[in-house]
């Protein structure tokens, strides 16, 4: 099952999970309306009574919500004018073994959407941990200089975050990114939410090093000095973001697709009413893409794709 692309135009003041759900909902509604006006031959059909099948598409076992159409979008100017950044969110509770295929699929969708052969920067977000400036200060104090390499690599230690996976699992995922880099599809790779210690452990095991670490600095600009210094030393750009790590919680998606008041009727109601699909939705990944005109600083295209699995 696939979520649809969406050019975000109403920027929400909230974090990007609100932005994502708002965008998805808006895109669903627009597609519903479009389908309603085309199928009804001028007679009025309220979009909400319209079968989801009229505005979605099934290909094999995949349902595209709404139907994807890559004929039109894309960019107004030639590729070299843009800085294209993609951020891929691996969601919690999804086996990491699937990520290689997921990454390919996500990048492929973005390339088709923007009509480009490559992207400039891919940042990945691993589930289960987020950067915390306070922890980081403590970390730095408790870690004498030069001993970062000696930190145990089991992923526990001073690194915080419930459900954070170990470095080796992340590196496994990283291998598939390195391959995309080798193929020339991605120019630069990046990670997000990495503190100094995690970064240090991670770097040693990469073949293609991340050139970006994206952290959430919220309002106060308290980025720990050690991280700034370490990033400088390792020539890693520290970029800012305002995303949630868990960008698409299961409940949110269920509500969005469901038959309730706020839903679009793709999923059946709680007791199986309606023509919608039955089963549990399990969000798998979300990808966000942004195309910025380099010498004008204008965000020309921005959107998301999301994929969820429908279980029994």
């Amino acid at each position: 099952m696939g979520g649809g692309p969406s050019i975000i135009r109403r920027p929400s003041v909230e974090k990007s999970n609100t932005e994502l759900t708002t965008a998805l909902r808006a895109n669903f509604l627009v597609s519903q309306q479009a389908a309603a006006s085309s199928t009804s031959n001028g007679a009025s059909t309220t979009p909400s009574k319209l079968s989801y099948q009229a505005w979605t598409a099934r290909e094999d076992s995949t349902l595209y919500i709404p139907t994807l159409d890559f004929a039109h979008s894309g960019l107004a100017e030639e590729r070299s004018q843009y800085d294209i950044t993609v951020k891929l969110f691996y969601l919690p509770g999804v086996p990491s073994s699937r990520r290689c295929a997921q990454t390919r699929e996500a990048i492929d969708l973005v390339l088709r959407e923007l009509h480009v052969p490559s992207i400039d920067l891919l940042i990945v977000s691993f589930p289960g941990f987020s950067f915390d400036a306070d922890d980081e200060e403590d970390d730095a104090l408790s870690e004498p200089d030069g001993e970062v390499d000696g930190i145990p690599e089991d992923g526990s230690g001073s690194e915080s975050g419930v459900g954070a996976e170990d470095i080796d699992t992340m590196i496994e995922t990283w291998r598939s990114l390195e391959k995309l880099h080798d193929e020339g599809i991605i120019s630069r790779l990046g990670v997000s939410e990495f503190g100094t210690a995690r970064l240090a452990r991670f770097l040693g095991k990469t073949r293609i090093r991340p050139s970006v670490d994206q952290i959430n600095v919220r309002d106060c600009c308290v980025v720990p000095k050690p991280l700034i210094l370490y990033a400088k030393q390792e020539k890693i750009e520290l970029l800012t973001h305002n995303d949630c790590t868990n960008i698409l919680p299961r409940g949110t998606l269920r509500e969005l697709l469901g038959s309730g008041e706020k839903g679009v009727g793709v999923l059946a109601g709680p007791s199986g009413e309606g023509e919608g699909l039955r089963g549990d939705v399990e969000p798998q990944w979300v990808v966000k893409y942004t195309a910025v005109v380099k010498d004008r600083g204008v965000v020309e295209n921005k959107g998301y794709f999301a994929v969820a699995e429908l279980g029994e």
Binding site: P11, V223, L239, T240, T290, G297
Partner: peptide
């Protein structure tokens, strides 16, 4: 929505490094 929140949202949509973002803040 407010002009400043709109600017913040724009800055969240482009790649800005930490130090620049803090100066702009």
């Amino acid at each position: 929505p407010g002009l400043i929140p709109l600017v913040e949202n724009y800055l969240n949509s482009v790649n800005v490094d930490v130090e620049t973002r803090c100066d702009l803040a």
